[in-house]
């Protein structure tokens, strides 16, 4: 990629903040790149992007739900509403990868079909790459970059179980999309398998009775106050086909964001980052490694108390563990 200021982190950060598509694409590739040279560049860049940690911008929204619930089509409809409201939107669409070949089919763009004339939308597909509980490890660092250039960053994942947990711990607002007629969602909520989302959506409301029934089942099953406190979880009916409920959903997402804004949001973002670092270290070094760093709780607290730089923090801890293992072996 021939970018004018690709090697100057300050200018690159400024280009991202200005919404320069080529710069954003370039940095996303760098974040994907595991080589040392790329890691050095992204560490320097993140330092520039993270200067205003106490005053975070943008809203990070997670959309999840079972396959076939119509998440991508719903996202496309939401994007149209946001664009009409003048908001710039970036999407990270995560699809599972094949456990055998490591390859993946990333098909979400197909259903999103955003206009090519519109510079206010940017979509990057990601494969889960068999790691991070189904949510690609690149999701958080890429979100950080996208938040610098867009008003809304939407993370879309398929799944039931572990993935909701992960997405709930990395997003400001989580939205669970249920399929009409499938009792699964209700069962998961009752059994406590499903992390309680901030907003519950029954999509395909155009399916009539089936959708109405699922809607009332979910309303009955759900405790209406979110464990976060101060938030009543709305259960909404939407249809991307006839446009039902999309504006209402966008309003609810906005309302939740308003609730979070300010100091609370800054704290949450620090928590996501701590969670991400913990999770990566856990994958790399196992619980042994986490124990060496004082155990999960202490590590998370320690990380949240520090001044932030994602990769610097991560690399420092990693080095500490390497050295300790080295010492033990010698």
């Amino acid at each position: 990629m021939s970018l004018p200021h690709a090697d100057d982190p300050a200018e690159l950060a400024a280009a991202i903040a200005a919404g320069d598509r080529a710069a954003i694409a370039h940095v996303l590739n760098l974040l994907d790149d595991r080589r040392d040279e790329a890691r050095k560049k992204t560490t320097a860049l993140l330092a520039h992007l993270q200067q205003d940690q106490d005053n975070p911008t943008g809203q990070l929204i997670g959309i999840t739900g079972p396959p076939g619930a119509g998440k991508s089509t719903l996202s496309a409809a939401l994007i149209r509403v946001w664009r009409a409201r003048g908001l710039r939107v970036a999407v990270l669409a995560v699809d599972p990868s094949s456990p055998i070949s490591g390859g993946a089919l990333l098909g979400d763009r197909l259903r999103m079909q955003t206009s090519t004339e519109d510079d206010g939308v940017f979509v990057r597909s990601l494969s889960s790459r068999g790691q991070f509980g189904g949510l690609s490890a690149e999701v958080w660092p890429m979100s950080v970059v996208m938040l610098a250039g867009f008003d809304i960053v939407l993370i879309e994942t398929v799944g039931v179980g572990q993935r909701e947990v992960d997405i709930a711990r990395l997003c400001d607002t989580t939205c669970y999309v249920a399929q009409p007629g499938s009792g699964d969602s209700v069962q998961f909520i009752k059994a406590g398998v499903l992390e309680v989302p901030h907003i519950l959506v029954v999509n395909k409301a155009d399916m009539g009775n089936l959708a109405t029934r699922t809607l009332s089942e979910l309303e009955a099953a759900l405790k209406r106050t979110h464990p976060d406190g101060h938030w009543q979880v709305p259960v909404l009916a939407t249809s991307a086909v006839d446009g039902t409920g999309i504006e209402t959903l966008a309003d609810a997402l906005e309302e939740h964001y308003q609730l979070l804004r300010g100091p609370q949001l800054a704290l949450r973002r620090k928590r996501y980052q701590a969670y991400w670092i913990h999770k990566r270290l856990l994958e790399e070094f196992g619980s042994f490694g986490i124990d060496q760093l004082g155990g999960e709780e202490s590590l998370l607290a320690q990380l949240q108390a520090q001044d932030m730089n994602l990769f610097k923090q991560y690399d420092a801890l990693r080095l500490r563990l390497y050295n300790r293992i080295q010492d033990t072996l010698e």
Binding site: S98, G103, A104, L105, L106, T116, S125
Partner: peptide, 20 residues
């Protein structure tokens, strides 16, 4: 090609037909 590419380990982005 998409299916084969996935089986060979590529990450495949495919958007279907009729693209500009």
């Amino acid at each position: 090609i998409a299916v084969k590419g996935r089986d060979a380990g590529f990450e495949i982005v495919y958007e279907g037909i009729r693209l500009t």
